[in-house]
Design a protein around this nucleic acid. Structure first.
Lengths: 216, 216
DNA sequence: GATCATGAATACACCTGGTATAGTAATATT
DNA sequence: AATATTACTATACCAGGTGTATTCATGATC
């Protein structure tokens, strides 16, 4: 039987075990980020990371499903952010504005909330020369995109069916991603990259206006 | 010294060696497609495919860089198709129409030109339940998208800079892909999927009209 | 036609990502 | 204090992927 009703206050304080777990997790993330940054992604094996973090390779895979996943630890939070924005403004505000808000929030979060460990920046760097990372990140983006699309469809069931919602969100996210990568490959700095993402979002958001009238 | 001036006619006929190479390549593709279809992707090892095609595992990797790549053999042709469409209609026709033509050509090719081996259909099926396939396909799409964007930028240098081109193409491709997957996950048939892709493309193509005026 | 160079395929060893299993020790619950 | 969880370890294993030396058919040259 599962019972978790220890009344440690309103919010459940983690307890020593959970704290230690998060500690190893953080150690793995930071160690991985450091080694990937120093030696490159491919030149760093999971065994190296585990060794440097003083745990076994097995432990690494108890925390992360794949080697790439250690780079995606901040992904879920960003998706939750977007979903929260949608949940708050949802059916009252017009679709276009809600989607715009959500995307802008994610872009801003990527740019500003990244200072502590620089994970997004590192990920961007590694994406350029590691196909595996690129593929995994794209898949993560795609999954996130699908969740956002479902949330939007739920909020505007009369305007959006499942496929249309996916299409619209796909357009915006696709534009933002492609612009970001292009900007990165252009060698532009974080400032310019963010600007490129915002511009791409603004342009792609016009798809929303086109929802009713499809010529062709 | 390298000399390849055997005059076998205007077009270079392949010769026995090259033909045998292509033969093993085809055998690997067909065998892989069959086994993946029968047992599923993850349940089929590269060794299995090689064995069934009567070659060594090493030979498989001389033809394909990764296990996933054997599913992408028809990808390059589809990209070339789009580039050809762009190259033919390029700067004369308006950007919107050229992009529309290119995308429609790719969609049509996916739907109709797929009968011989059903590779696109198989790929779509396998994407749904194999993360590795999904990731690799997304990466392939992303790469293709970058090439198309570059071609467009070359054709309309005054309208498009690098980042904008990437954004526009990213929007259209992103919309089409997302719609296709959503439709597939909806359990819709090939007919409906194609229709979903066309609709998504039509909607996303409105981004092109928004190129001049960006109201943030 | 004999000879030589090329390159597709082989055989074999090896590394790394990822998993299964059984076990240990610290932590949480009663 | 006794018991149940559970993060972590140790170890062996599988599959994807690569390096290297070798074989052998093919294509070029004489």
């Amino acid at each position: 039987m599962i019972r978790m009703h220890y009344a440690r206050g309103v919010v459940e304080e983690p307890g020593r075990r959970e704290r230690k777990k998060q500690q190893t997790r953080r150690a793995l993330i930071e160690t991985a980020a450091r080694l990937f940054g120093e030696r490159g992604y491919d030149a760093t094996s999971v065994a190296d990371v585990a060794e440097a973090a003083d745990v076994t390779k097995r432990t690494f895979f108890l925390h992360f499903a794949t080697k790439e996943d250690v780079l995606l630890s901040d992904g879920p939070a960003r998706v939750e952010l977007a979903l929260r924005v949608i949940g708050e403004q949802a059916p009252q505000a017009p679709l276009r504005e809600v989607l715009a808000e959500a995307v802008h929030a994610m872009i801003a979060d990527t740019a500003s909330g990244d200072l502590p460990n620089g994970m997004a920046a590192l990920r961007a760097r590694l994406m350029v020369d590691s196909p595996a990372v690129q593929a995994r990140v794209l898949r993560a983006v795609f999954t996130a995109q699908a969740r956002i699309a479902e949330a939007l469809r739920g909020a505007y069931p009369e305007t959006l069916d499942r496929v249309t919602a996916a299409g619209v969100v796909g357009a915006v996210v696709g534009a933002v991603c492609a612009a970001a990568i292009a900007s990165l490959e252009n060698g532009e700095g974080p400032e310019a990259v963010s600007e490129a993402m915002r511009r791409a979002a603004a342009i792609a958001l016009h798809t929303v206006d086109a929802l009713g009238a499809e010529s062709d």
